[in-house]
């Protein structure tokens, strides 16, 4: 589904991503775990086309999207739930969801997906005329997820969905991620919360200061002593 090859990304002189390669297979949950400043958000932004890499390739279903502008990437089936949600605070919940479907023309399909999002997150429907800025952190996370789903993506990128949420809410969010995946959406999940991420991931990579240092199945990495000492407090 998604293939990243020898990606290098720089901010001026700082090399934030130093030649990483990884693959997300069709239908799986793949996770990239890493500490603060490892380069997780940079990787996500580069895949979505917000930052252009110095070198390397990004392939979406074997199509090279490295130089494709960000707005076209969305219509090619890749959506992102960005770090810190970034909902449009001054728009209502419904307007936020409609913006998620910006690239689509199929009115009926959009209505259908809006229905699905409201069924998945009933709290959003109750508050649909409310400004998104008035929502709690957890509700904003749900809105950001619903908004990305409105693009009807083949692959969904999620950047630290657990950030700033209570343990109970984190559980709920991860349950929903699994559910979305089971219904056919491929997921690339970036997390600092390694325990939760590895528990639901089919495959995982460890990102350390811009390099991939380990890879394996979620289970394998959860058992790996290096991962345990660095990320699982074990």
């Amino acid at each position: 589904m998604l293939k990243v090859e020898n990606l290098v990304v720089r901010y001026g002189m700082i090399e934030a991503i130093k030649n990483i390669s990884f693959t997300v297979n069709d239908g799986e949950i793949c996770t990239l775990i890493g500490a603060n400043g490892a380069g997780k958000t940079t990787t996500m932004h580069t895949i979505s086309g917000l930052i252009k890499p110095v070198s390397g390739k990004i392939l979406l279903d074997d199509v090279d999207i490295t130089k494709v502008p960000s707005h076209k990437i969305v219509s090619m089936g890749l959506a992102q739930v960005p770090e810190r949600r970034r909902v449009f605070a001054q728009e209502t919940i419904e307007e936020n969801l409609e913006l998620g479907a910006f690239t689509r023309r199929d009115k009926d399909g959009i209505q259908e997906d809006l229905r699905k999002v409201y069924d998945r997150f009933p709290r959003l429907e109750e508050r649909k005329k409310q400004l998104a800025g008035t929502l709690s952190g957890g509700e904003q996370q749900m809105l950001a997820m619903g908004r990305a789903l409105m693009a009807r993506p083949k692959i969904l990128l999620m950047d630290e969905p657990s950030m700033g949420l209570s343990p109970l809410l984190v559980k709920e969010i991860f349950r929903i991620i699994e559910e979305i995946n089971k219904q056919g959406t491929t997921v690339l999940l970036v997390e600092q919360n390694a325990k939760m991420a590895l528990a639901i991931a089919h495959r995982a990579y460890v990102l350390e200061t811009g390099m991939i240092t380990l890879e394996g199945t979620g289970e394998e990495l959860a058992k790996d002593p290096r991962v345990q000492s660095a990320y699982l407090g074990g």
Binding site: S70, P82, R86, F102, A148
Partner: peptide
């Protein structure tokens, strides 16, 4: 409101 987020919507 947020240019980056707007890009992520496909705008």
């Amino acid at each position: 409101e947020d240019e980056g987020a707007a890009r992520l919507m496909g705008i």
